[in-house]
Simulated assay, not measured.
Amino acid sequence: MADIKLLGLWYSPFSKRVEWALKTKGVEYEYIEDDLQNKSLLLLQSNPIHKKVPVLIHNGKPICESSVILEYIDETFEGPSILPKDSYDRALARFWAKFFEDKWPSMMKSLFFKGEEQEKAKEEVNEMLRILDNELKDKKFFVGNKFGFVDVVANAVALWFGVLEEVIGVVSVTSEKFPNFCDWRDEYYIQNKEYLPSRDELFAHYQAYIQRVAASK
């Protein structure tokens, strides 16, 4: 039997992408929760460049970066496909996955930065959501007719961003403004609740984090 370990964090959307893929494929693995404040020697040895989770260790060989790990899992293990079979759809999936990866920093800036940089980030996020809302018109998922690679990569937008908005008390993503996106987001949560952390637990975690940061200033 293959020796498979996943170094992760329970509240990390990037770790949860990999957990979803492993469970969907029916792969047995050992989950190891790491601590960003006291990173394990195994993490530092496995990902010496970025020193972050997730890291998949397969028969002693580490694979880093969540989207790379997703493709590795899809290519290596039997089970339901994550990337589309059609080559054009695979290209589309990779395009939209990169779109989400590129926009995530702006989403964080729109929440936690101040002043001109925050306003610029908010404009970029609104434009991103308009693009996504239009892309999802008359569609249930981003590529093809089933939940797949792009939807998994977009998990931070589906759950984490909304929770963080609630924590800071500013909710901008509404069904009135972005109905197609919100329908996709709600379907995402319904279909994948077993693979996602509790909204209440996430809220409590980030609320406590923000309070600690505020108290330290």
Rank of each mutant, 00 (worst) to 15 (best):
Y31I: 09
L22E: 04
L44E: 05
P80Y: 08
E124R: 00
V68P: 11
K23A: 12
Y88L: 08
E116S: 12
E65L: 12
F113V: 12
A21G: 06
K103S: 05
E116D: 12
H58V: 10
Y72K: 00
S87W: 11
K109C: 14
K39S: 09
H50P: 15
P54M: 02
P48C: 15
W104A: 05
W20T: 04
C64A: 14
I69Q: 02
M108E: 13
H58Y: 09
P54A: 01
K103W: 03
S66D: 07
S110H: 02
K16R: 11
Y31F: 12
M107R: 03
P80C: 11
L43N: 03
S12G: 01
Y72T: 00
C64H: 13
E19D: 12
V55S: 08
L56S: 01
N38G: 00
F14D: 02
T76K: 04
S66M: 01
F113Y: 15
L56Q: 05
W20C: 03
L56T: 01
A21Q: 06
W96M: 04
I57G: 04
L41H: 12
A21P: 07
D102C: 01
D74P: 04
A97D: 02
W20D: 00
N47C: 15
L22M: 06
F100I: 11
G60P: 02
Y11T: 13
M128T: 07
G26Y: 11
D89F: 12
M107E: 08
E33Q: 00
Y88H: 13
M107Q: 04
P62N: 06
S46E: 06
E124W: 06
P13R: 03
G26F: 11
L36C: 09
Q45Y: 10
E116K: 08
Y29Q: 01
S66V: 09
